[in-house]
């Protein structure tokens, strides 16, 4: 091993890393899709009139947010087989990362819903909208634009957390870099390239999220 950068080695491993990047993006996308939907469920569950449910969900969200994702990934992957449920690395990874981020997104939604003025709820009552229509046609559409910045942060966040999936053998970018490093006894190029690929994706994404937020606000006439 030496610290001199080898370009031929770089070109040799780059296609393999880029292929693994596709898996990373799929993992981030699938995990995020779970989190977006489940987060809304967790947020709305905290607004039901039934107080015990609110308390339980609140504590569950706190629990998920205060414990390490990598530990949750291990937990989901290993605990299933103990009770006869065998989950593939991909399935357990998506469950763990989706659940983890749904707790964060539920907080984003909650803040967004709380920010909708009280007068909007009252106007809904005054025209006699049902609770469901009040949420889905009036409150949530207004809670969304101010939530986009937070949602975007967590999209980038989930992407940056996907390397943790390598610990249970999901064949994403970090997993590929580890494998290349172990096969060739060279870590400089694979790990540096992984860092550069992450930078090349997460920096523009953060900018795109800002553009998207402005577009949604204009689109909704706000």
């Amino acid at each position: 091993m030496s610290f001199d950068w080898k370009w031929d080695f770089t070109w040799e491993i780059l296609p393999r890393l880029l292929a693994a990047t596709v898996n990373t993006l799929i993992a981030a996308g699938a995990g995020y899709a779970i989190a977006v939907v489940l987060g809304l469920v967790l947020a709305l569950a905290q607004r039901t009139p039934w107080k015990p449910l609110t308390l339980i969900v609140r504590e569950f969200v706190e629990f998920i947010r205060s414990t390490p994702l990598v530990l949750q990934i291990f937990f989901v992957f290993y605990v299933g087989p103990q009770f006869g449920i065998r989950l593939s690395p991909w399935t357990s990874g998506m469950i763990a990362i989706g659940l983890h981020y749904s707790a964060y997104l539920s907080e984003v939604y909650r803040a967004g819903i709380d920010a909708v003025p009280r007068g909007q709820w009252e106007a809904c009552r005054a025209i006699n909208l049902s609770t469901r229509d009040t949420y889905f046609r009036v409150i949530i559409p207004q809670a969304l634009p101010p939530s986009i910045a937070g949602m975007g942060n967590y999209l980038v966040g989930i992407f940056k957390d996907t390397p943790m999936l390598s610990v249970i053998g999901v064949a994403e970018l970090m997993h590929a870099a580890n494998a290349i490093g172990a096969e060739n006894y060279r870590f400089l190029e694979p790990y540096t390239l992984v860092g550069l690929i992450f930078l090349a994706i997460s920096l523009p994404t953060a900018g795109l999220v800002r553009l998207f937020e402005g577009w949604v606000r204009r689109k909704m006439g706000m």
């Binding site: 003025p117 909007q120 009252e122 106007a123 005054a126 025209i127 559409p141 207004q142």
Partner: peptide, 25 residues
């Protein structure tokens, strides 16, 4: 009821604001 601060739905046009109740309710 009409309110001091109007409370129109900001994401709907004037017409959509008026149609919301008749259609949904």
């Amino acid at each position: 009821m009409c309110f001091q601060h109007f409370n129109l739905f900001p994401h709907m046009t004037a017409l959509q604001n008026c149609m919301e109740g008749p259609v949904q309710v």
